[in-house]
Nucleic acid binder design. Structure first.
Lengths: 207, 207
DNA sequence: TCGTTTTTTCTATGACTGTAGAGAATAGCG
DNA sequence: CGCTATTCTCTACAGTCATAGAAAAAACGA
């Protein structure tokens, strides 16, 4: 029997190589040749694992979402209400180099989704899932009396969704005015508005 | 003397054709041939007006910003404070078909800006200009007593910037949950948070 | 009507792309 | 050591793209 490779693991290596290329050289630089080279292979070696480029990209984009979702689940474990909401949003905000790179991936993804129905659906599903989480956490916050604002939960969830998505853009394209510290302060400022001026953010582990 | 064309006007025709193509078929469909055809010309006719594709795109993107800025100037004339702020943001939000198409343009633009220094600078300058306007309007609102929130103006301006940018994405990729009506309500909800629960939006001219 | 100058068309070119598939290289097993 | 199934390399191909530039067309003044 010949050399045996773990196909799933290999796929993950290729996805990570893709991820690095897009973060470094943008989507234009993400050619099959470049990706293969980055992963340490020659041109045609990707085909057995991803028969087409679109398969590779779809898998790569999905993986970024899964990564974020896993982080969010871990970060909100044991929390509820505004505390959970804050932890949740902080996992999406580009607050470190890794998440800034994720922003560099998601922007090209949005552009693809504009003309690719299946990617648009993938995005819509993920965003709907996030929105549902936010609404749940807002509901908890209402019940706990943490949330006194006379604005509908739907609108608040919309604010937060647009805020964290917009932050993907500003963090990458205007880093001077939207540094991690500033984005973090922005989120806490918004939560303070929600709480009616009484919300104080937990001690923030620096960096 | 031969046929004479107004070069500036011709450039504008070409930019509008580009704009239509990108809105309809996405950035991938915006080839020189397609743009020329859309404008009613043959392949090579663009060169005298835009020597290279990048020149054309840079001009087209700049034009969208100018268009938005002109609209904002008109919409805020005679207003100040929160009223001006509201009118200002409403000109950026994708509240009608035209502005939804602008969102379809700006998303590919962001992606280009990720790896194109000059486009990144163009974006940063425009965003900085908008942010300055917002800060000015917030200052007016503070002086007029419209704004009681105990959150810094910098953070509020950041909220609004991220909100209107995020709305470009949600409006196009999740139109079901971010319709013009919902985005408009979101903005007013946020302003209500700012005013401390007392802000009531002016009668909205429907559509 | 003709001639000149601008404008536009049309074809060619070279670069780059994703994909395909034949062959070589490789590694585990007898 | 040798066999064989798997993995990988390499070359080739068809398509698309931006761009260049020669030639044709058009329009205005005389």
């Amino acid at each position: 029997m010949p050399k045996i490779v773990d196909h799933d693991q290999r796929r993950m290596e290729l996805v990570n190589a893709t991820w690095r290329i897009i973060a470094r050289h943008g989507m234009e630089g993400a050619t099959m040749r470049e990706i293969a080279t980055e992963a340490g292979f020659a041109n045609g070696a990707l085909k057995p694992y991803f028969p087409t480029k679109d398969d590779l990209l779809a898998f790569a984009f999905g993986h970024v979402f899964n990564q974020t979702n896993a982080r969010m689940a871990a970060a909100t474990r044991g929390l509820s209400g505004l505390g959970a909401l804050r932890a949740f949003c902080r996992e999406i905000l580009p607050l470190d180099e890794n998440r800034i790179n994720e922003a560099r991936i998601v922007i090209p993804f949005w552009q693809k989704a504009l003309t690719d129905e299946s990617k648009a659906r993938l995005h819509d599903d993920a965003m709907e899932q996030w929105r549902t989480h936010l609404l749940q956490q807002l509901h908890e916050a209402r019940e706990a009396g943490e949330l006194r604002a006379e604005v509908g939960d739907e609108d608040i969830a919309g604010h937060l969704m647009n805020l964290v998505l917009g932050a993907q853009i500003t963090a990458v394209l205007s880093p001077a005015h939207y540094s991690p510290d500033q984005l973090s302060a922005q989120l806490d400022g918004y939560l303070q508005l929600l709480a009616g001026g009484t919300f104080s953010s937990p001690a923030v582990e620096k960096k």
